[in-house]
Design a protein around this nucleic acid. Structure first.
Length: 567
RNA sequence: CGGGGUGUAGCUCAGUCUGGCAGAGCGCUGGCUUCGGGAGCCAGGGGUCGGAGGUUCAAAUCCUCUCACCCCGACCA
């Protein structure tokens, strides 16, 4: 492709609307343009990258025996009512009416549609297992779209759904997809990790997330180098390596702590370590019950664990007014002693001697609180987030905490949707049974952002070879066009080449080529005419080599191999 | 939805406090020179100052309402 015939509107300056690296570079490199918040045009070079990823995903899914289909973005409310998600899904589900006043929504996911399809067509265990997938736009009306393609409202997703006759079949399908996902992300040249994850709104019990490792990731992963255990931190059991000293229980002592609101303030004021100051949080469940949660001052509540402790009931923080009427104090002086509501205590406080609690009286705390003596909790459980220093739940070695971007998520759904929608088949024993389902998502457009977050420098993007919009950027610095055309044709036999044939200054061409992240640059300068040599620059390393025209293809082949191996 | 911020040329932004001719750099068009890391000079084109209403002799600037976008939080594949 000659740039003269291409559409590549690059920007010299960072657009004001972008904050993160990938968002800035996607706009500057002419990959995307915004249409509305969280809604983007893909320009030619952006679409090329998207298609590269799609094709890798498609090839691996097909290899695994999955069958590609396309389902509609617009879906009727009736299907969503069958599973109850028309009510349950919340405002992310964009609902509207057609001209006949019938309710519809834009599909944020396709469990209902696929289950409806399969229940109508598949009647026998003989037709199972079946894995269907699509690569198609999704719409989720995110309350806060951000970071360009990272969290868009309209985005491209690969979603696959498996149908099996029994749990053993689901296990096989799940495992197949787990392995396929590894192959997909490897084939994309990404540095990633599969972790145990929370199932969220899709439902089901077991799930894994696939995380692209990048410092700017929104998720935190706990990783054990010793045994390979890895989980999303919202799921990681908090296992401390700390041993509490056996210390005699001292008598409870009320102290004046004027205007000391945070655990940190109180610790400083009392001259005690932060860990010794407990904090009490008040939450209200969806059915209106107030619950107090007590944690060590240096620990944070894990909301996923808390929700499990509430048997899945959702909750919200209590307002200051509610807190005052429940405890008689304001936040900053709350404690578990003497409360009439249920008290949940994080297990880190078990056997923790003589800690500080709020007195439920403004500006007062108690020293030397002890579980059992000072108050009796209704529940002692693992409620806090795992943190630096905690131990691997599998092997007991210290965990590492790293940041990641979620690009894939696989779930075992079981019969959640098939039962609700009465999607059944006749099994070998002649009995009617609901399909055992799994679902498997990949954020195809998000991968572009994740790849850039993981692979860039101050000059721009450094695409992995496998998903680069072009393999070779050919830069003409002199006017001998016929010679250059010949090299362009020659390279195009084996690779996708973007030829900068513009009448621009060299600096402009170099900077644009660096910006858009094409892995190999071939620079045609004076040496071509004088000595028959061209220069190759490797975008990732900055390495430059002079090679003769004759050796050009061999050199690039070697570079290609090296780039594909290292990533 | 709560808190904060920004809307002025295609892009980045100044001008708004203290009302008085609509600005700069980059990009764009034409010309001359330049040509291995975002060139120089000359000449040009380009604006409902986000929108509506109000105050005023006069509004980008002050007031009211409204819309859009960005950031933080809550939420989430």
């Amino acid at each position: 492709m000659k740039i003269r015939n291409f559409f590549l509107p690059t920007l010299r300056e960072d657009p004001a609307e972008a904050e993160t690296v990938s968002h800035k570079l996607l706009l500057r490199g002419g990959f995307i343009r915004k249409v509305a918040s969280g809604i983007y045009n893909f320009l030619p070079i952006g679409l090329r990258t998207l298609k590269k990823i799609e094709n890798i995903v498609r090839a691996e899914m097909n290899k695994a025996g999955a069958l590609e289909i396309i389902m509609p973005l617009v879906q009727p409310a009736e299907l969503w009512m069958e599973t109850g998600r028309w009510q349950a899904y919340g405002k992310e589900l964009l609902r509207f009416k057609d001209r006949k006043n019938h309710d519809f929504c834009l599909g944020p996911t396709h469990e209902e549609v696929i289950t409806d399809l399969v229940r109508g067509e598949v009647k026998s265990y003989r037709d199972l297992p079946l894995i269907l997938y699509q690569i198609a736009p999704k719409f989720r009306d995110e309350m806060r779209p951000r970071f360009g393609l990272m969290r868009a409202r309209e985005f491209i997703m690969k979603d696959a759904y498996s149908f099996d006759a029994n749990v053993e079949g689901l296990e096989r399908s799940y495992q197949l997809m787990y392995e396929t996902y590894h192959r997909i992300f490897e084939a994309c040249g990404l540095n990633f990790k599969a972790v145990e994850a929370h199932t969220g709104a899709i439902g089901g019990d077991v799930s894994h997330e696939f995380m692209v490792l990048a410092e700017t990731g929104e998720d935190t992963l706990a990783n054990c180098e010793a045994c390979g255990y890895a989980s999303n931190v919202e799921l990681t059991p908090a296992i401390s390596g700390e041993k509490y000293p056996t210390e005699p229980r001292k008598p409870l002592e009320k102290v004046h702590t004027p205007n000391k609101k945070t655990a940190r303030d109180v610790a400083e004021f009392l001259g005690l370590p932060l860990a010794k100051i407990s904090k009490t949080l008040i939450y209200i469940t969806e059915d209106g019950e107030a619950i107090a949660v007590v944690l060590r001052g240096d620990h944070e509540l894990n909301e996923v664990k808390f929700e499990k402790a509430l048997s899945g009931r959702s909750f919200r923080p209590a307002t200051d007014e509610e807190i005052f009427s429940l405890t008689g104090a304001h936040p900053g002086s709350l404690g578990p002693r003497g409360l009439s509501i249920k008290v949940f205590v994080d297990q880190a406080l078990k056997d923790f001697p003589n800690f500080v609690i709020g007195a439920n009286e403004d500006d007062y705390h108690f020293l030397n609180a002890n579980l059992g003596d000072t108050f009796d909790p209704h529940l002692i459980a693992d409620l806090r987030k795992a943190k630096e220093g905690d131990l691997c739940p599998k092997c007991g070695n210290p965990l590492q905490f790293i940041k990641g971007i979620e690009v894939g998520h696989i779930f075992k759904l079981g019969t959640k949707y098939s039962s609700a929608m009465r999607a059944t088949f006749l099994d070998r024993d002649g009995k009617e049974k609901p399909f055992i389902m799994g679902c498997y998502g990949i954020g195809v457009s998000r991968i572009i952002s994740a790849a850039i977050e993981q692979n860039h420098d101050e000059k721009g993007i450094i695409f992995p070879w496998q998903i680069a919009p072009f393999h070779i950027g050919l830069i003409s610095l002199t006017k001998e066009r016929e010679n250059h055309q010949e090299i362009y044709d020659h390279l195009s036999e084996d690779w996708e080449v973007l030829w900068d044939d513009r009448d621009e200054r060299p600096g402009v061409k170099f900077n644009d080529m660096d910006l858009v992240g094409i892995p190999v640059q071939v620079i045609l300068g004076k040496n071509l005419q004088e000595r028959g040599e061209v220069e190759i620059k490797i975008r990732k390393t900055g390495e430059r080599l002079q090679v003769s025209k004759e050796n050009l293809k061999d050199s690039i082949e070697n570079i290609e191999k090296a780039l594909c191996q290292s990533s």
